[in-house]
Amino acid sequence: MTRPRKLPALLLAAVLTASLAGCAGKGTAANGSNGTLAVFAAASLKSSFTDIAERFEARHPGIAVALSFAGSADLAAQISQGAPADVFASADARNMAKLQDAGLLDGEARNFATNTLAIAVPPGNPAGINSFADLANSGTRLVACARQVPCGAAAASVAEKTGITLRPVSEENSVTDVLGKVISGEADAGLVYATDVRSAGGRVDSVPFPEAAGAVNAYPVAALAGGGNIAAARDFVDFVSGPEGQEILAAAGFGPGAT
């Protein structure tokens, strides 16, 4: 009698422990007081900012950079809700503007990189995509970002300028989701950033298209007024825009951010 009734209880306990374990350890606030610099950066900056942070730490003994990567909109929302961050690097101007309007920035944001769209196809390009117009071929399974996220807005603007109507089979929330669907071979083509193609290594091929130049995405970075380590935050922003930061970003496929 007691045995079967234990089953749901045990399950529940298992679920609870699992979810609590998942949360533990994440809550350590990374704020300035003890030489920690919390950098919130767009997901597409993951590999380059990891390198930049390492070099920055080498140049600034005593400062540990704590990186947090997510979609720019998520990060902006977290920061405006009081997340302890010293630096914010966004993949678009809109999310930076939100924080600017809320008076959360220390000074002005600075564009430090640009990214252009690229067509990613599975190795060997099975669907034979050779141009932006080919994306509209019937039977081609195109995956793009939704208009609400920066990569989707860029794709929509290229489509508008060229007068080509894209009919994606899926409009994803993030560029990494698009890339994943191309890597797994589910999609015949995906509209991603040039840097994503680079970071995917040989797992996708890239089809360049000249129309991409019409929708270049600028990445702004800024120190945050509410951070506990403003001097170090300003140093970090300078470092990102400086020669060493720019070299790392260029190697990842970003364009220069001079404006």
Partner: peptide, 27 residues
């Protein structure tokens, strides 16, 4: 759903996916 089915209005974008997407621009 997001991982396996994708996200397209009327086809695969269920209410939770729509909420997740709207949150980007229209909280």
């Amino acid at each position: 759903t997001l991982t396996f089915a994708g996200s397209l209005q009327g086809v695969t974008r269920t209410l939770p996916l729509e909420i997740y997407l709207q949150r980007e621009t229209d909280p």
